[in-house]
Design a binder for these strands. Sequence first.
RNA 1: GGGGGCGUAGCUCAAUCGGUUAGAGUACCGGACUGUCGAUCCGGUGGUUGCGGGUUCGAGUCCCGUCGCCCUCGCCA
Length: 591
Amino acid sequence: MLRTHTCGQLRPEHVGQECTLCGWVETIRDHGGTVFFDLRDRYGKTQVVVSPEEGQELLQQAQGLRAEYVVQVQGVVALRPPGTENPKLATGQVELRARKIQLLNRSLPPPVAPGLKELPSEEVRLRYRYLDLRRPAMQEVLVLRHRMTKLMRDYFDELGFLEIETPMLGRSTPEGARDYLVPSRIHPGKFYALPQSPQLYKQILMIAGYDRYVQVARCFRDEDLRADRQPEFTQLDLEMAFVEMEDVMEVIDGLVARLARELLGLEVSLPLPRLTYDEVMQRYGDDAPDLRYGMELQDITSLAQQSNFQVFRQVVEQGGVVRGLCVPGGAAHYSRKGIDELTVFVQQDFGAKGLAWFRVEEGGKLNSPIAKNFPPSLQQKIAQQLSAQPGDLLLFVAGDFDLTCRALAGVRKRVAGELGLVPRDKMHFAWVVEFPLFHWNDEEKRWEANHHPFTAPRPQDIPYLETEPGRCRALAYDLVINGSEAGGGTIRIHDPELQKRVFQVLGISPEQAQERFGFLLEALSYGAPPHGGIALGLDRWVMLFSGRENIREVIAFPKTQRAVDLMTGAPGPVDPRQLRELHIQVQLPPK
RNA sequence: GGGGGCGUAGCUCAAUCGGUUAGAGUACCGGACUGUCGAUCCGGUGGUUGCGGGUUCGAGUCCCGUCGCCCUCGCCA
């Protein structure tokens, strides 16, 4: 070893000991006669002192050091002179009096480093990720990620789960997200697909009798990126045989409680709340609502119908709804200009026709350019239904139910953020259950699976599978943390006949089903046990538990919004010979 | 594919209504200094204002195009 201790280790008890530290030079304080510098590694910082008594050569060597040089320092641990202790450092009681400095490596002036007072742009941080990762904030989150993953593995190990790896090179299935493809050299014109999730393999494992499977699984989806979405991400994936919904949810409840306790020191009471899909869509317009604050949605369709406001009346006549929410204290916070911005927001982002608004005055009187269309008694009823207080702002969207959900959920999130209504120190966990099994794709005029085509319907809904697909609810459960979809799972279909019926509803012909999932249908025919599972978005969990607002902050080497790795330059061109071997001809899009 | 924001020294930022030689802090280079910890003090180097075009007597500033980064809608079973 090149060192005897780490830079976070030395304490008064080490005083007098000869020791050797290795690390990166942080700030250098050169007084001409005496030189101080902080030596840093991932365990902490220790002040090194170079005195003139140790000789001119050592002093000059110290004066030649620069930020991020790598050095080995041999010296004696000493108590700092009274009054010069540094309470900001864990090692601040002591210092290392250098006797010998070995320069292990130089560094160019770093564009980003722990010693710099200003954090550079994310672009610079990503280009020099190895420097960015030296910062304590990045180390903290990677340590948290490690601890969380280990706690998860320990927890499932205790419950008898086996971690089993599944292939990265699989087969493309056209359902779901766009695949990342890998060409086959041996089979010209054929491709593997990287897994979007280990879904089919884990079902096969259940059939194979490995009744408790878990995996920290890398997944790939070639879709557009977001603040909480990377093309390559990690799931804590698990599957259990001989279980019902509640069994899987209970296992995850236990995991949530343990992680909250071990990582955050929080006690979470179990079972976690269970809400139905219909309920959250009514109350929040969002299947993953942030339940740390209120501002619930209210339906005023019948009241709107009684008004003289043509916009509302027309929408209602055409079968639409009018819904809204009450922004506490919003009347003062949102000027006319601020409300205009919200209006543009719902129009541009969600396609709403507009945003109706009222300022609430004393006695439930509503003030707004459109208030004249609402008789005083109606104004009072509206104010009453939204539990509005003077000074509040009421916002309404009219349209079909789905549109009002999306627009108002967007408004609720945005307004809560702008008014600081989100208690950022709180954590809220909840389950959302009873999702529709299918949703209607209006463009392609067909039913699509809401989760995936292997999701089991509730037994009581099976009779309506063919007649009223929209009425069928799934044995599905999403875990929502602070308004983020943090995990989702389902009970799977284990009956090949039922699976065939679902394929039929989805417009997947028996031939197509055979072609795409023949192996699964076949496997289901060889004694498949009832089974179900869940996948947790590990990156999002780390985000939520560390309070980071961006998924790139919890991934060591993330990609930009255009899916580029700024450090390596991936994706990059390849040698024509490689393409020839893969039988691939590239046709670039016309410019 | 659509909407929005940003792009000036290695890094973080400034530059009035379009007006003189594009400034500051920090880093870097040189000098001074024996208890600092964002050391301090003195001096200095450093610019294709992302790129290309246009308008103008004159463009960092206005217009068009393009590239990059971020947020977002669509998309993400």
